[in-house]
């Protein structure tokens, strides 16, 4: 479980300061699909980055399974990310000159896993995602949908507790987008926590919890409650 308590994030200083998050207190429950919904510039990506320990709050605390992430050193946070979090980015962020296999195995390379072991894990994940025939291809030889699936494979290869996806369908057509969303749902059904950042209510409607964010102010509601409200 990840708890944010009274979290602020301020960029810059003085008159030019941007208050991206304002006194945010939310909880990401284990094994749940949580969507962060908001317009562009609302602070949703900032919130995701803090949840995923990619960024640190200006004020407030972040607890992950009892650990205070805000008091951890950069190296400790790096290790935490390597072990517990997987990221899926809108722009995929695959290394184009690496093979699919090497891209997927990257978290395991960073963890220092031996080559044979990490390749076995990467191949297994790629097979599960239907990409076993793309293993030796360069990442820049894939379609958008394939790239995003590779990105998801990379986010899963090290068996993280939580997968954070920042607008994963943003650069995909509707069909590929739907496939990616289905994959994320399957990941959650496997017992992992999934946090989805989106501006699209359609993507968020099946989430267990939805965090609405506007101008840095967040409010969390259960998915059922939101759907009930929507249905009147």
């Amino acid at each position: 479980m990840i708890e944010l308590k009274n979290v602020d994030k301020i960029y810059g200083k003085g008159d030019g300061a941007v208050h991206a998050l304002k006194n945010v207190s939310v909880t990401i429950e284990d094994g749940k699909f949580t969507a962060i919904l908001g317009k562009s510039g609302s602070g949703k990506s900032t919130l995701m980055n803090i949840i995923g320990a990619l960024d640190s709050p200006t004020n407030g605390t972040v607890y992950a399974n009892g650990q205070n992430l805000t008091e951890m050193s950069p190296n400790a946070l790096a290790e935490y990310r390597n072990k517990t979090t997987g990221f899926v980015f809108q722009s995929f962020y695959l290394e184009p000159t690496f093979s699919v296999l090497d891209n997927v195995a990257m978290p395991l390379i960073i963890a220092g896993m031996p080559r044979k072991e990490r390749e076995e894990k990467a191949i297994k994940v790629l097979t599960q995602l239907g990409l076993e025939d793309k293993i030796n291809k360069k990442a820049n030889e894939l379609s958008g949908g394939q790239k995003q699936r590779v990105s998801i494979a990379r986010a899963l290869v090290h068996n993280p507790d939580i997968v954070l996806a920042d607008e994963p369908t943003g650069n995909l057509d509707s069909q590929n987008g739907a496939e990616v969303m289905a994959l994320l749902r399957d990941i959650c059904n496997m017992g992992k926590s999934v946090v989805l950042v989106t501006h699209n209510m359609e993507d968020a409607k099946n989430a267990d919890n939805i965090i609405f964010i506007e101008d840095g102010v967040a409010e969390m509601k259960s998915g059922n409650a939101v759907n009930s409200e929507a249905n009147g």
Binding site: P74, A78, Y80, R81, K83, Y93, E95, M106, P107
Partner: peptide, 16 residues
């Protein structure tokens, strides 16, 4: 830098 940033997101520390 982009490549480094990506690897840091996946857990590469400063020493790495």
């Amino acid at each position: 830098r982009k490549f480094i940033g990506l690897m840091k997101a996946m857990g590469l520390n400063q020493n790495g």
